[in-house]
């Protein structure tokens, strides 16, 4: 297993591939069930693990957990993850999935939240490949809430199809989705973002905002926001701002002496920076920053 160096040093690491499990975090793992019973920040590293069934993460009652999930899968490409967040528990989950070039990658992320449970999902999607990702969030319990933050950078011939679906299945449930999308080269990013509030689930709130910037002539970003609402006493909103780099923002920065290249980098950084700054762990933050810097190299130059 090729564990990233800084991860090896983490005391709360659980890493596995087909041959080996390194379980410094002492999480109870039965087959494909990871059971989290102690409050902590965990680092989960998965490499080419053969998953025939879904991998289940159980967040027990009342626990506040932070999990950093980093995967390098290039063999088994149909994967389902399930996260069950029990009553009064909270999960802050950072994901960074990676695969080899041009692999077709099928990924499902399912979340089930009980009463008063909360989820903050931060997904960094930065690899060159062909990804279908569907994120399903079921707000089953009263007052459960989910915040989803996505930073997606498409480059080369990345092709991503992302489906996000939040189901509000109880009263006073809250969801908030923020997608920040950057496309360069010939990449294509396609999003369908749906919020569903069933009848009777009053005082629920479903919000989403989608920001996208296209940096080349041959890239594409397509976002389809959808809200299905069958109840009056709720709040819902969606917005999508997708386009080229804003001329006036560029002009403003240039007028203070920044070169065009500096100005463009700074504006692009403005898309990635809010996401990066949400990450608590310094090493993970550094890893992500270098990943972004690597793929964005030269992309700020005006073609």
């Amino acid at each position: 297993m090729n564990i990233l160096k800084f991860l090896k040093e983490k005391k709360t690491l659980i890493a596995f591939d087909n041959e080996q499990v390194i379980n410094k975090a002492k999480i109870s793992k039965k087959n494909n069930h990871l059971n989290f019973e102690k409050e902590n920040d965990y680092f989960v590293f998965i490499e080419n693990y053969n998953l025939t069934e879904k991998l289940v993460f159980e967040v027990n009652k009342g626990l506040n957990l932070r999990i950093y999930l980093i995967t390098y899968q290039s063999k088994n490409l149909e994967i389902e993850y399930e996260f069950n967040i029990e009553e009064n528990a909270s999960l802050e989950l950072y994901t960074n999935f990676n695969t080899r070039r041009n692999n077709k990658f099928n990924l499902k992320l399912n979340f089930n939240l009980d009463e008063n449970a909360s989820l903050k999902l931060m997904s960094a999607l930065i690899f060159n490949g062909n990804l279908s990702l569907s994120t399903n969030i079921n707000l089953n319990g009263k007052k459960s809430s989910a915040e989803v933050e996505v930073l997606n950078i498409g480059y080369k011939d990345t092709k991503f199809n992302i489906d996000q679906f939040v189901r509000h299945l109880n009263k006073s449930t809250v969801s908030n989705i923020n997608n920040s999308l950057i496309a360069t080269d010939k990449s294509k990013l396609k999003y369908s973002v749906s919020g569903f509030i069933a009848k009777g689930n009053e005082l629920s709130k479903a919000h989403q905002s989608n920001k996208g910037i296209m940096l080349s002539d041959s890239c594409e970003i397509e976002v389809e926001p959808k809200l299905f609402i069958d109840e009056y006493n709720v709040e819902a909103s969606h917005g999508a701002a997708i386009g080229q780099m804003d001329e006036m923002q560029l002009y403003y920065l240039l007028s203070r002496g920044l070169t065009e290249q500096q100005a463009r980098s700074l504006i692009i950084f403005g898309y990635t920076n809010p996401f990066i700054s949400m990450i608590e762990d310094k090493d993970i933050k550094r890893l992500l920053t270098s990943q972004i810097t690597r793929v964005m190299k030269g992309k700020a130059d005006n073609e």
Partner: peptide, 19 residues
Amino acid sequence: PIEVPGVTNFDFVKAAVQT
């Protein structure tokens, strides 16, 4: 004045001074 989301005032002014 134009709003530039995601770019902090500090980073911006620093870049302008550096340049």
